[in-house]
């Protein structure tokens, strides 16, 4: 199987999530190849898991004030603040049969590529099921997966820098989650690349690119016209709609 790799791009939240869904549809109908993509979010955005209540998780007023977009993902999992300059995001989209049937094992496989990327940067990290990657017991990366119509989509983020002030002003951090882990502050739960290594964003991207493509048959590619048309349609009609955003 040959992978298409789409190098680092920057889009808004709606196009980013719509592209993932458009590729999934394309693979299902045979018009898109299995794809690995890397991307930034501009403007910054909060994404929430498919099952989350947006009012529970997001301080919508602060988001409006700061110009931070809010989007419901197609995947489950938790709320994430996507800082424009503070993270790198990836998506892996391919027929589910390419990956282990066991969901945790498929997370372990793809998260292993991020761990390898961090290793290239000299940072030792470990997979923590279900969907986290930790460095010295602090979360540096989270991922989320869906399998629909025989296609696996996993996307996730690697924290490069931390703007904790903005992160905790736009997210309603769950007190239960904090209490359960017996820690006083949410800040103590997360870390980022820059806390371990003074690497430029480009260097981090190159490390991830190398790790994700190692031992794979791949080629750099571009979006086809159908994917772009469909992504724009999904962005406008689905991901920007109140019906979708306030689904729960």
């Amino acid at each position: 199987m040959r992978w298409r790799v789409i190098g680092l791009e920057t889009h808004d939240a709606y196009i980013n999530m719509a592209l993932d869904e458009a590729i999934s549809e394309g693979i299902r109908t045979g018009s898109s190849p299995p794809t690995i993509r890397f991307y930034n979010w501009e403007p910054g955005a909060v994404s929430i898991g498919y099952f989350q209540g947006i009012r529970d998780e997001v301080n919508l007023e602060v988001c409006r004030e700061l110009g931070v977009d809010c989007i419901r993902r197609w995947t489950g999992g938790g709320a994430v603040y996507h800082d424009s300059g503070g993270e790198l995001t990836y998506s892996v989209i391919a027929p589910a049969g390419v990956f282990p049937k066991n969901i945790i094992e498929s997370y372990r496989l793809i998260c292993g590529w991020i761990i390898r990327g961090l290793e290239i940067l000299g940072i030792e990290a470990e997979f923590r099921p279900v969907n986290d990657i930790l460095v010295k017991d602090k979360k540096i990366s989270g991922s989320a997966q869906t399998r629909r119509g025989g296609i696996l989509l996993q996307h996730g983020t690697l924290l490069y820098g931390l703007d904790l002030k903005t992160m905790f002003s736009v997210l309603n951090v769950s007190r239960q989650k904090i209490t359960d882990k017996m820690i006083k502050s949410a800040e103590e739960r997360v870390t980022c690349v820059l806390m371990h290594r003074e690497a430029g964003r480009e260097e981090v991207y190159e490390a991830l690119l190398k790790a994700f493509t190692e031992d794979k048959d791949y080629g750099f590619g571009a979006w086809n016209r159908d994917e772009l048309v469909r992504a724009r349609e999904l962005a406008e009609k689905k991901y920007k709609s109140e019906e979708w955003t306030f689904l729960r």
Partner: peptide
Amino acid sequence: LRITGDFFLHPEDVL
């Protein structure tokens, strides 16, 4: 009834 959270459920519509 409304069930929400940061869990995963495949297929999602089952919720």
